[in-house]
Amino acid sequence: MAVFCQNCGTGMNDGARFCSSCGAQLHAAAPYAPSAWTGQSRLIRPRAGRMVAGVCQGLANNYGWDVVLVRVITVLLAVFGGGIGLVAYVIFWIVMPEEPLLLPSGTSYVPPSQG
């Protein structure tokens, strides 16, 4: 089966992960492909796109779900599920690590001095 870059349209080999012309990452054809599930993904709370703590955004990003649907289900479970949605949100907030800061290469984070 021929694989084409969705960014520039260049034809690629079947096993290619990145486009040789523009460098864009090629997406797997089917989400159930065995190669798509070989790597272990890690739940993180992203810094971008969060509303409160990033729990719903992190779950949506990790599993490929729509973030609005995850947020609606969380609110419905919090209101009509006896508070289980709120309890689950707080547990995920505590357990899920936050996305690390991305610093330019060659720099390190120095916290401001107190005093």
Rank of each mutant, 00 (worst) to 15 (best):
F4A: 06
N7M: 02
C8A: 04
C8R: 05
G9D: 09
T10P: 00
T10Y: 11
G11I: 05
G11L: 07
G11V: 05
N13L: 09
N13S: 13
N13C: 04
D14H: 08
D14Q: 09
G15T: 15
A16S: 04
A16D: 08
R17T: 09
R17D: 10
F18G: 00
C19K: 01
C19I: 00
C22M: 04
G23L: 06
Q25A: 12
A28Y: 09
A30F: 13
P31E: 00
Y32L: 12
Y32T: 15
Y32H: 15
A33C: 06
A33H: 12
T38Q: 11
G39A: 10
S41N: 15
L43C: 06
I44F: 01
R47F: 13
R47C: 10
A48P: 00
G49C: 07
M51F: 14
V52M: 05
A53P: 02
Q57S: 15
Q57P: 14
Q57Y: 15
L59S: 01
L59M: 01
A60V: 09
N62C: 08
N62D: 08
Y63W: 08
W65H: 04
W65E: 04
V68R: 11
L69N: 15
L69E: 15
L69R: 15
V72P: 03
V75D: 02
L76N: 04
L76C: 06
L77R: 04
L77H: 03
L77I: 00
A78P: 03
F80H: 04
G85M: 05
G85S: 05
G85L: 02
L86R: 02
L86N: 03
L86P: 00
A88M: 11
Y89G: 00
Y89W: 04
V90S: 10
V90Y: 15
I91K: 13
I91S: 13
F92W: 06
W93P: 01
W93F: 08
V95C: 07
P97N: 11
P97T: 10
P100R: 01
L101Q: 13
L103H: 04
G106E: 13
V110L: 13
V110M: 14
P112W: 02
S113I: 07
S113D: 10
Q114G: 06
G115R: 14
